[in-house]
């Protein structure tokens, strides 16, 4: 049982800069994940256009038949989204935590170029721990 199935991070222009799979069925190749990420970027933008009232900041939660997609957009336009089991709670907290890890271990890395794919060992290690902790917390609930 997986609490979250996968994690995507896309930069402000819709390019996929980080993708990690945590046990979804079937293989998704690199091209597919890139396409999905940019598709999500556009859907997010269109949903703001269709808002009946002012001040819409895009989709936060998409409820599909077999999964939930939780999205968090940072102030700079970087979007973090996780695919989780339907009805999973507290995903906002996890997303905020991942955002913190991103600011600490990616943005503060002097060798990281902005808007480019993330290759930071420390980020990977800490992310794995955060996801594991979330999973343990889910089992404990």
């Amino acid at each position: 049982m997986a609490a979250i199935y996968s994690l995507y991070i896309i930069n402000k222009s819709g390019g996929l800069i980080f993708y990690k799979d945590y046990g979804s069925a079937g293989r998704m190749d690199t091209n597919d994940s890139l396409r999905l990420a940019s598709l999500w970027h556009s859907m997010h933008a269109i949903s703001q256009q269709l808002s009946p009232v002012h001040g819409c900041s895009g989709i936060e939660l998409l409820e599909a038949d077999t999964f939930d997609l939780h999205c968090f957009q940072s102030l700079t336009g970087t979007k973090f989204f996780v695919v989780s089991e339907p009805g999973t709670q507290h995903m906002d907290g996890l997303l905020k935590q991942i955002y913190e890890l991103y600011t600490d271990y990616v943005l503060k890395n002097p060798f990281y170029e902005m808007e480019m794919p993330i290759r930071c060992e420390l980020f990977d290690i800490n992310l794995a721990q955060a996801v594991l902790k979330d999973r343990v917390a889910l089992l404990g609930r």
Binding site: L62, E63, D65
Partner: peptide, 12 residues
């Protein structure tokens, strides 16, 4: 295929 039944933004 897998479809969806709702989505939520901060305003609707």
């Amino acid at each position: 295929g897998c479809s969806f039944h709702s989505f939520r933004t901060n305003t609707y």
